[in-house]
Amino acid sequence: MMSFYHPEVLYSQIRNDLKTLNKFTDDTLIELGVSFNQKYTPEEVRELIPENITLKWYWVDTYSEEDIQSLNKHKYNIVFW
């Protein structure tokens, strides 16, 4: 299950599955979600993604400043689905 993180929300814990990628065989197809630690424009994201990666969609920031402040009030690990 993928988790997504907003760069302006403070988390008690962030899931990192990079170490599990080597458990898959070379012929395995995976869907990968990437969360960044800062804001990027769509153009900047395209420049960060290697050409041999098929990029299907972006989750663009849709949170207001009030949303982010509200999320930062929580003391537990917040996971976006």
Rank of each mutant, 00 (worst) to 15 (best):
N77Q: 14
T25D: 10
K39I: 00
N77K: 15
T62P: 01
H6L: 06
Q13D: 09
E66C: 00
N52Q: 13
R46F: 02
N77Y: 11
V79N: 15
Y11S: 04
D67C: 12
R46E: 05
F80W: 13
S64A: 03
D17G: 04
V34W: 02
E66K: 11
D27F: 04
N37H: 07
Q38H: 10
T25Q: 10
Y76E: 15
S70N: 11
V9D: 09
S70F: 09
Y63V: 01
E43M: 06
K73D: 08
K23A: 07
H6R: 09
E51H: 04
Y5A: 09
V9I: 13
K39Q: 03
L29K: 13
D26T: 06
V34A: 01
I68P: 06
N52S: 10
P42Y: 04
D17K: 10
Y58Q: 06
F24P: 06
Y63T: 06
F80K: 13
V79I: 15
K23Y: 03
V34K: 02
T20Y: 12
I30V: 15
L21F: 12
Y76N: 14
S70K: 12
V9M: 10
Q69E: 14
S3K: 13
L21M: 14
F36M: 11
S70R: 11
E65L: 15
Q13P: 01
R46T: 00
L21A: 06
